[in-house]
Design a protein around this nucleic acid. Structure first.
Lengths: 206, 206, 206, 206
DNA sequence: GATGAATGAGTGTTCATTCAT
DNA sequence: GATGAATGAACACTCATTCAT
């Protein structure tokens, strides 16, 4: 976490540093990202960065947290909306739509979270701190779905949450690889396909 | 691919080199893996490694191929078994069990294949050579399941194959993260849970 | 070109680095010159050199430019002196004398420029930036000599400029190879011999 | 010089080795030439090459000598033809024509000699052994020209020989740089231009 | 005499972090 | 607190030469 020195920085300088860091981490996976380029883009001395953050990882963690907070903000309301009211399927769709919206509004933050997911070295270390928050949202949805009798109660909630998360990333991969070839509409139908499978898969079995 | 010099090496030396490489690539994603550490662990001069392999990537590819061959060996027979005879579910379970067995017998090789899947930079380059073989196996299973009337014909086969692949990786992650905490039995039930969801999800809808 | 970091270096350190580079490039053609040896002679860490110069070629170019600037400084005034006033022969002699003086005052810088001229690989690349300036001086002298009716107008100016340049290098070679065996006087007579041939060779033919 | 082992080699093998060496040294300046590539092209083991030649330089020297012998063979007869009969100018033109013919018939050997001339590191060392032979031919021509009363007796023969040599190289450079843009005819007129200057320059002064 | 694997010092270059000013 | 120069270990890769078989 940043030092108090950082918090007391003039707003615009603080923002410049964050922007530079976000840009760099979005363009390069953690290990390939360069502290040198960050300070250059931010227009601050190298020594200063190390007065604000303990080291590269500390800065990375901070940027990541920012992204997560944004993402949660987008998903806000989803947690509160009762599943009874909207059903798991439509809640989940809203959740995915939120992610999609976030990716469109803040593509760089989104890319960082993504690259983290792919760096095996870091994920174990960093994700231990954040991921639960991410999985938790899905787990809660599942729990409410179960309570509402919509979802099979026998499922292993943490496992299924994880499976769902991985599927959303796989979907994002597919989209990225063929980026451009998807219209907004076809994207939605892609999500719908996945949701249909999911809904079928975990729906209450008679 | 290794030079003939490598093939003619005394068995134990060749094995020492491969072990060192597998260890290194299992511990560090490709870009973080160090040729220096590999030769150090293997106890050979740097120059020698470059007499055996063209470069770092060549060595990586070789190790990867070894892993793939192993994996395919474990999965041998699955492609030929007709889905009509065994059903998609049981074929898929056999497939997963093969992967599980492989992961237990050669955890490091398994980890390497895994880390490749997560390195977006490399995947496009290296996977062009290998991966299709991976997805293809699943796609064929799905196609046979559809032909047998077992699976919903409306599904997007490549997409679903990809989703399934991602779920198996998520599962493997879960296992690796809590390695030790799973008995053989509980592992199987983990897979069964995923399979049940899957089976439900893509089964023919009436 | 060096970074500002280099420019701000304490005079003696900057000079130590330049001396080491000049020595190295004088002793070894560009490709054989070693960055390692340079930093060792200069007594600085390798990383520092790369904070001052982008790469080996950048350093080389800088050293070369230094030599060229020196050389041009020695030759200053020659361009402006009208051939009509002094005649081609005496202008050319002054030009050669300037080169000679430079070679004696800064023999290593002189050797570098020389070795560049002989490295076909580099010359095309580097010389594109510098050399024309070299040939141009001679071409202008020739043109003025022609205008003054002193020199045969039918000559191929660029070719003759090149031939003259090559003769000056050959002369310098001869001097370097038997360095020490020439007194100031005998050197001058060497140049005079060449000039006499040249003067005869390109003088207006009746 | 090669060992007796090399001399006793079957003709075709010896030739293969020489061809490979000539190719390599023609394509790359001495220091950039690779022993590895030579043995590869020749299809012999590395160890063998070192049984035939003491080291890389020994092989280089041998190849160079071969080239020189060829060149002298082309120029044979020129030494014997009396200048009185043909005059310096036409002898020199024949000499240049011989060089041109050699360059066309054995471009690779010619390229090697050329690259040597440009490698400051080597020239001093290697040329000390060969060059005199090269200059000698020109010196003899000059001496005969002087004896015949055609050439100014006051000239410094070794120096002028050297200047002439350097001019031929400069000419060759010009040709190489604009290679293709010269027809056989325009080449000859280029040489003639140089010869005219030379003839004027060193002709007997009254 | 033939072989080709072994060697290891060498190459240019990068970069997170430290620390004196 | 701000600065930016200093650092040096690390990186992937090369290659002429040697030497055991």
């Amino acid at each position: 976490m940043p030092t108090s020195t950082f918090d007391n920085l003039p707003e615009d300088k603080r923002q410049r540093i964050l922007d530079a860091a976000v840009d760099e981490f979005a363009d390069h996976a953690y290990h390939r990202a360069s502290v040198g380029r960050i300070v250059q883009r931010a227009g601050i001395p190298k020594g200063s960065l190390y007065q604000y953050f303990a080291d590269k990882k500390d800065l990375y963690r901070y940027v990541l947290q920012l992204g997560l907070e944004q993402k949660l903000a987008y998903a806000a309301g989803l947690r509160d909306g009762s599943v009874a009211d909207r059903g798991f399927l439509s809640t989940m769709r809203a959740f995915l739509a939120a992610g999609l919206q976030m990716a469109r509004d803040h593509p760089r933050l989104s890319a960082i979270a993504d690259s983290l997911m792919r760096d095996g070295d870091l994920r174990a270390e960093i994700l231990g701190e954040f991921a639960p928050q991410g999985y938790r949202v899905i787990e809660e949805m599942l729990e409410r779905g179960i309570a509402a009798g919509e979802i099979e109660p026998a499922i292993d909630v943490p496992l299924v949450a994880r499976l769902i998360m991985s599927m959303t990333f796989a979907l994002a991969d597919q989209v990225r690889e063929r980026s451009g070839s998807y219209t907004d509409e076809s994207l939605v139908s892609l999500y719908d396909e996945m949701l249909a499978i999911l809904a079928h898969g975990i729906s209450r079995r008679d």
